[in-house]
Design a protein around this nucleic acid. Sequence first.
DNA 1: CGCGTTTGACCTGCGC
DNA 2: GCGCAGGTCAAACGCG
Length: 319
Amino acid sequence: MEKKQEEELRTELYSTISDQMLIPTSFSMTNISDYSGMPREFDQKGFLGFFDVQDFTSQSTFDLLQTPSLPPQFMQQPLPSPVADSAEGVNTPVTPNSSSFTSSSNEAANDDRQIKTIEEVEQDQEKTKKQLNPKKKNHKRQREPRFAFMTKTEVDNLDDGYRWRKYGQKAVKNSPFPRSYYRCTNASCGVKKRVERSSEDSSVVVTTYEGTHTHPCPIMPRGSFGIMPETTTFGGGGGDGGGSTSSFIVPQMQHYRQQQQPYFHSLMTPPPLMNFGTNCNSSFHQERTFRPSSFTLVRDDGLLQDMVPSQMLKDSKKE
DNA sequence: CGCGTTTGACCTGCGC
DNA sequence: GCGCAGGTCAAACGCG
């Protein structure tokens, strides 16, 4: 019964993956002791890591974001795996199941992974929707692209440098924790974010951004990141990480589709304690901040460039 | 007084 | 059409 519901939910979620996956200009974290949430899927052909989380429920968001398709080290505290991919037969989830990934070394596994382009994903979604909701209208109300991530932190409302005004709070079904709704206080900026705690792990906060800021960050960085060396605490294998306020920048990827797709998995092995700087003008720092540098494994001659299409980087520099 | 939060009411989309 | 749940509004309130 419950499983069936979960399955259905998952199916629904898989089917809602957007064709526009957008990452907010930047965001930061305060007192984060861990970072457990990152893109669910990055592969060579399709950047599927960040999800359009429209219509997600708290539970589902949580599940999706901790998808086992991420490298094992991604999760410091492995959470129960999502229900078996029984929905696969129906809608072919974008993400391969965990076993296919963990059965071999990360890289090898990655190579073996099922790869889908956004277009393929869309086709799957179409199929899925037709199968699941044959009567359903095909068009959905257009919404701002969304991007969700999870953080393991005691702080609900992460400091990302922008100013937010809370405009609502709602109880979430099947969750003891309410969901808070925030809007950017800048009048001309319609960015919103939702913050909620995972019902499964109360230490995990799921933050969902919707839209992109149309203005510079009102709060300047506290030193960090502009000067953050590549080898900073960002991973440093358990370094002593220390700052209480931190941030990291995510490349502003707009209209990802049709762009060179990045190779991003394994990029974000969560450090014991993140210590990012704060900077809202991501265009300048995006590479450095997101770079896995200290994050294990990946050198920048790989992922970041792959992750951020060159075209995009050019664009961002123009601005 | 300005700004942000709280909270109940209301709106909207969706499934049955 | 109805009910449910998510999302938003806006008045009241609190705080510096």
